[in-house]
């Protein structure tokens, strides 16, 4: 006869292997899906100041201010293996000192079940747009892109870029007004 311990062990082992198998199926069923989609964004107001960055070098660095519009529908990205989307709006630009600069200006967590049809008008950024130097004034090509990091229930953690981006210029003069 089997003892209680043996039965318990068998049940636990079987339950765990079934769970592992189902988790793998959940991962395998969504691993090849295409999570790209369209997003429209636009800048409304763009100014740049030259002020000391006390959080970093304490030297005077360029600090950009902008407000933006954003429209996108991400509801079809959710499936049984998407627990959360981490949305982030990146400003990407080149300066004489740095070949590539990427600054996240705004981010948002959308969990499954929450509203994922976004339509923002004249939004303020969530983070400061500090440059690593003085490369923002008169910068002719700053590109805004929306991306999302997919957090699954179990599986890969891809970073996806949206279709559609927006390029804008910074003014050639520093603003002196208070922001």
């Amino acid at each position: 006869m089997h003892s209680v311990l043996q039965r318990g062990n068998a049940i636990l082992a079987y339950a765990l292997s079934v769970l592992a198998f189902l988790t793998f199926l959940c991962f395998a069923s969504t691993v090849f899906l295409d999570y790209r989609t369209h997003a429209e964004m636009n800048t409304v107001k763009v100014v740049v100041k030259n002020v000391p960055d006390y959080s970093a070098s304490r030297e005077k660095n360029d600090l950009g201010f902008l407000t933006f519009d954003l429209q996108t529908d991400l509801s079809h990205l959710f499936n049984w293996n998407v627990k959360q989307l981490f949305l982030y709006l990146t400003a990407e630009y080149e300066t004489p000192s740095n070949q590539l600069n990427q600054v996240v200006l705004w981010d948002k967590i959308i969990q499954r079940g929450e509203n994922s049809v976004l339509d923002f008008k004249n939004m303020n950024t969530k983070y400061y747009f500090w440059d690593d130097g003085n490369g923002l004034k008169g910068n002719k090509n700053v590109t805004l892109t929306l991306s999302w990091n997919i957090i699954p229930n179990a599986g890969l953690l891809p970073n996806i870029f949206s279709y559609g981006s927006h390029s804008f210029k910074f003014p050639v003069e520093y603003t002196t007004s208070r922001m």
Binding site: F86, S97, N98, L100, Q102, V103, V104, Y127, W130, D132
Partner: peptide, 10 residues
């Protein structure tokens, strides 16, 4: 943690 800002030189 997640990368928030990045500067890459030539």
């Amino acid at each position: 943690h997640r990368v928030l800002k990045l500067h890459e030189k030539k």
